[in-house]
Design a protein around this nucleic acid. Structure first.
Lengths: 214, 214
DNA sequence: TAGATTGTTAATCGATTAACAATC
DNA sequence: TAGATTGTTAATCGATTAACAATC
């Protein structure tokens, strides 16, 4: 399982493999070949084998891949065998939607704290977690060894908040604000820019219509 | 402005250009060279010029790019000069978060209807839009010529719903359910798989820690 | 052993970067 | 005209696909 410098293109595909393997596992499928998986997932069998072989040999010639084993191994690669604590900064609808998503809990992501700047929310609870004043977030992260901060606040507040987070010892930021954060290398950032996604959709609608006309 | 078969890699970068140009415009910057933009956005000047030239010449030798003009042109390419009507299917926190996001409205995305299967929500309002029973969604889309359906429902319901949507004449689905939808070519799908995104973050946290040790 | 299918190398394809001639 | 910077071609790099030898 040596893995140095695996491209983000490969990493981006792992959760999808994991999802399909989870389905197969649930349906009681024991083994699968790269060709069968290729048919289901609509990617080439070659790519599947290349992707898996970045992490070592998970299969067996003449047999294929054992679904349970492969599922577990990909889970490990993705770090889903460990728990990751997280806090949500911004207790609006988006923050609440994420906090309430029980599947994350199943994957080892433990929701430890919620923060907002609106005093009306202080003391209210999201899934047994009390909403606290946002000023307390840095101390809370330090004291509780929180790994991930989910940023569901407006973009104006996101940049100064990311500065605070840098000092807090946070390991990663899951950023939903529509702005790029500038953080040092030791902090991982994953952006979810919803407006970018919607614009891409808008482009593709118009493109398809223009293609029809020509 | 001829544009045939521009790669999705290029399209994915357009919203980010648009965001930065919007900022520059707001700050009153009149012109910018690919090199200056390169410094700000941390992509190569070469890529910037290549990307823009997919759509024709937006710049001028010896001068650079006019910020306002370039901003408008990219907006047009992304279809933001037109309005796009949308409905939200699933009026939970995620649906409400999206409905409430006023910036979408500013970009021409008009929120026309909300649907849920929970009777307790029927008649309640999200931003002046009444929540209706989900059974009415197909008729509503047909009668109001809705272009985009935002799917913020659990994955079990997402697949049957996508089947209904195919018949409704919808043009695009913005899919937040953790499942891949199988739709014909005339319907555009943009997936927002939040769990995939979080798993990627998890991978990168662990990877960084392992890199430190070795 | 024969058949199946992986693991892996080699070939291809596409995307990014570099270089520079065109031109404002 | 000289300087700046684009538009665009050429070179490089990386990712995907094809092919096949290794092996279960």
């Amino acid at each position: 399982m040596s893995d140095k410098d695996i491209s983000q293109a490969v990493i981006s595909r792992l959760p999808r493999y994991f999802r399909y393997l989870g389905d197969l596992k649930e349906r009681g499928v024991e083994r699968i070949s790269s060709q069968e998986l290729s048919d289901i997932m609509k990617v080439t069998a070659s790519q599947i084998r290349q992707d898996f072989n970045n992490f070592g040999g998970f299969g067996q010639q003449g047999y294929g891949y054992n679904v349970n084993y492969l599922y577990d191994e990909i889970g490990k690669i993705l770090g889903l065998d460990k728990t990751h604590s997280l806090v949500i900064i911004g207790a609006g609808h988006l923050g609440q939607a994420i906090a309430g998503y029980t599947n994350f809990t199943r994957r080892g992501f433990v929701f430890k704290g919620a923060f907002d700047k609106n005093p009306a929310l202080f003391g209210t609870r999201i899934r047994d977690v009390e909403v606290r004043p946002v000023d307390e977030v840095v101390d809370f992260i330090r004291q509780n060894n929180i790994e991930i901060a989910v940023l569901t606040i407006p973009k104006e507040q996101a940049v100064p908040m990311s500065q605070k987070l840098i000092d807090s010892g946070i390991k990663a930021i899951w950023n939903f604000a529509h702005v790029d954060l500038d953080v040092p290398d030791n902090i991982q950032v994953e952006n979810v820019h919803l407006s970018d996604s919607l614009m891409k959709l808008s482009y593709n609608i118009d493109r398809y219509e223009k293609t029809l006309k020509s």
